[in-house]
Computed example of a mutant assay.
Amino acid sequence: MSQTVFAPWADPDQKPLIRFENVTKKFGEFVAIDDLSLDIYEQEFFALLGPSGCGKTTMMRMLAGFENPTSGRMLLAGQDIAGVPPNKRAVNMMFQSYALFPHLSIWDNIAFGLRRDNKPKDEINARVEEMLKLTRLEKFARRKPHQISGGQRQRVALARSLAKAPKLLLLDEPMGALDKKLRQDTQFELMDIQETTGTTFVIVTHDQEEAMTVASRVAVMDEGRIIQVATPADIYEAPNSIYVADFIGDVNLFNGTTSPEGDDRYAVHWAEGHPPLIATSAQPFSDGQSSHFAIRPEKIAISTERPTETANVLQGKVLDIAYLGNISTYHVALPSGQIIKAQTANTRRISRRAITWEDPVWLSWNATAGVLLDR
């Protein structure tokens, strides 16, 4: 049985849950969001990713109702929500600080919003129990927030945010306070909960790994603009600019000029006295056009013998080796002075490895391994 791929953004008949139409947000003279248009679909786990000050938190605050656009329209399920107060929107926000009530039990923290809406008692009881079960907190219902761990507090905040069944849940750096191991476990829990409830999640993060793990699509932002919106795989494998390639993961960049070689193949002239690099690109480049060739370290093979039968071969010298347990990253200096990173999986014991510091080595990759960029 084939599983259907979740990609509502690729279906022209799907209506977005959230639509930003030419939204600009200014604070005095400062432009925080610059003429931004974006569609987010129901049941998406959507990540806004970018450095501090890129506008991602401003977008979230506008969705939550704490800020209104200076110009443009913001629609939720087809309704313009500018000016609608936060408590009248089908939107909930989970803050970085979790903002739990310290004097209330976990149970009462989750029930808080439902009680404020004057829901019937049995309905509140049923909903809180359901949320405790969803977030695996049944055992902790009677405890106070200070009596449970940081990861459990995070789940209480999530349960409380989901209790009112919002159409949209906004998560502002939700895992910022957790250590790395717990953070990774929590990411998978979040994905499971999002899938179980079918709620649309929009997460703000500056952690690329987090965005790549949890999101159905990622919007990479810079200075109030969206540079690229795509699935994590496309953002990583097919970035549309140096900014995106460099922002996500490690990348080697060669700057040069291209000349066509026929059949989507190009030669990239990158250093005087060095053979050009051979790359493929579906996007056309003209002869002599300045371009940037980006290649991930794991796509580059490193060897002590000169490889044959491969499109690109460079020689260099090992400057540094970063041993990360499962992988090793080699920093190799080319004769041009450029430093290239190549990565290998450590499948053998360390004593069996052939390459060490100062060794002359060959770097190689095929024509389709990298991506040619025009900006």
Rank of each mutant, 00 (worst) to 15 (best):
G28T: 10
A369R: 07
N109W: 14
V91W: 07
L169G: 06
G150F: 11
N346W: 02
G249R: 04
L363P: 00
W107M: 04
P51R: 14
N366W: 07
L137E: 06
T196M: 03
N68T: 03
D179L: 01
A367W: 05
S303H: 03
V220C: 04
E272P: 02
T186N: 12
I300S: 04
T199L: 04
K144Q: 15
F101Q: 08
N22W: 07
I193T: 05
L319W: 08
V313W: 00
G151F: 13
A165E: 15
N240L: 11
S351W: 14
F140E: 04
S290V: 00
I148V: 13
T200Q: 07
A354S: 11
D80R: 10
E173N: 04
I18D: 02
Q147A: 12
G325R: 14
I110Q: 10
A99V: 11
L319H: 09
E130D: 14
A126S: 14
S303W: 02
T344Q: 09
M191Y: 14
T356L: 05
K56I: 06
L17R: 10
F20N: 12
L162S: 09
T4M: 15
W357M: 08
V5T: 05
E272I: 04
M131W: 12
L314Q: 00
V371I: 09
E123C: 02
P166F: 13
R61K: 15
R115M: 02
V156L: 12
A159S: 12
E223A: 15
E237P: 01
A267I: 05
L49W: 14
T4D: 10
L48I: 01
G325Y: 06
Q3P: 01
G288N: 13
D263K: 07
E195F: 05
G150P: 05
Y41R: 13
N255A: 13
A238M: 05
P239A: 15
A238V: 02
L114M: 11
A354Q: 14
M74Q: 13
K119V: 01
A345Y: 05
M60E: 08
R127Q: 11
H292L: 00
G325P: 10
K299G: 00
S105W: 10
K181G: 02
M221P: 11
F188P: 01
E138L: 12
D192C: 00
N92T: 15
V318N: 15
